[in-house]
Design a protein around this nucleic acid. Structure first.
Length: 336
DNA sequence: AATCCTCGCAACCGCACAGAA
DNA sequence: TTTCTGTGCGGTTGCGAGGAT
């Protein structure tokens, strides 16, 4: 490497572009194409570096750029693609004709991120924010699982798709929590691969007797929630299909996004993959994969996965904090 | 009316990668 | 194989507009 940045050139203008500069750039590219960006400014009579010219052209002056507000469909598509691709704005922009990566990135940072946060969804992982404060508010969060709380309008249903997926993750976190709580007890005979049927059969948390147990459990829980808690963790059920309304629907690649939140669909839950989403920053390693390939893989995986419903969860009334089987109140007493 | 604060967006910066020499 | 060049990408910054005090 060792190349000096082109923008180090002395006397090169920086900052906002004037209409005259825009005009020069447009005229030149219309006549000659951009060719070498490095040589363009000199040839076009611009006192700018090539990089600045390229940026101005690609992000603002290009004739095919669509300006104005993002539609609900576009926003839904951005959220969906971001959940699969992460911050790969250039890849995402290829699915939104007329939108630049810069524009999408800005829109994400200023609008969509906040909206997701307001929904209690981590915009990085697209999961329900799984921190301890949230767990303390567990009953309210669990009530989100109730389909009666579904939101009606279309944009909200897009967010709800995320929320549904997040809720499912939350269910798995709960399961992990229960296992940690029980297995951390010195008196517990629970095996590491605790069977959910057994868990349901033993509804009392009586074995958890003292503060040390609780602290130990909390430490483990914190570790789990801080990211080491992979959904592929051995304590998590194998690949399962959970019936959920408004499920996370794979988008057809070549078509406009359809965010229909009114149908009952199946959400495929791949517990043997690292996470619900494939491209959270910590596991976005296959950047070099072609975008189509990535998205196609996601969709085909979702479509082809054979499924085995987890019966015990059907019996678990998660929406009821007083659910008698597990004694949620009892559990929550141990969660700070 | 003046000042402060927040927000949104355009532009910049540094790095990485691919291909050419 | 190494070095250089051109380009693209993602993160960050700076500034103007608008609202709040």
């Amino acid at each position: 490497m060792g190349r000096s940045p082109c923008c180090d050139e002395v006397g090169v203008k920086k900052g906002p572009w004037t209409p005259e500069e825009d005009e020069k750039l447009i005229e030149y590219i219309k006549k000659h194409g951009h060719g070498s960006w490095r040589h363009l400014p000199r040839n076009a009579g611009l006192n700018r570096c090539g990089k600045s010219c390229r940026l101005r052209w690609t992000n603002y002056l290009r004739p095919d750029i669509k300006r104005g507000k993002f539609s609900e469909e576009e926003e839904g598509l951005i959220i969906h693609l971001h959940s699969m691709l992460g911050n790969k704005w250039s890849l995402i922009s290829t699915k939104l004709p007329g939108r630049t990566d810069n524009e999408i990135k800005n829109h994400w940072n200023t609008h969509l991120k906040k909206k997701l946060l307001l929904m209690g969804i981590d915009p990085v992982t697209h999961r329900r924010r799984a921190d301890l404060e949230l767990l303390a508010n567990l009953p309210n969060l669990l009530s989100c699982c109730n389909s009666s709380t579904r939101m009606a309008n279309s944009w909200d249903s897009t967010l709800q798709l995320q929320a549904d997926a997040a809720n499912l993750v939350q269910v798995q976190i709960l399961q992990g929590l229960l296992q940690v709580l029980i297995s951390s007890s010195p008196n517990s005979n629970a095996s590491p691969n605790l069977n959910m049927n057994n868990l349901l059969a033993g509804s009392s948390l009586a074995p958890l007797r003292n503060i040390a147990d609780i602290l130990q459990a909390n430490r483990q829980l914190e570790a789990l929630l801080n990211g080491s808690f992979g959904l592929a963790h051995g304590s998590i059920p194998s690949a399962s299909t959970i019936q959920m309304p408004n499920s996370y629907q794979a988008l057809p690649l070549q078509n406009q996004p359809k965010m229909n939140g009114n149908e009952n669909q199946q959400l495929l839950f791949h517990s043997n993959t690292p996470s619900l989403v494939s491209a959270s920053p910590e596991n976005t390693t296959s950047v070099s994969l072609k975008q189509e390939q990535i998205i196609s893989n996601e969709i085909s995986a979702a479509n082809s996965e054979s499924s085995t419903p987890i019966d015990p969860w059907d019996a678990l009334n998660l929406s009821d904090p007083n659910g008698a089987d597990l004694g949620w109140k009892e559990i929550l007493e141990y969660v700070p």
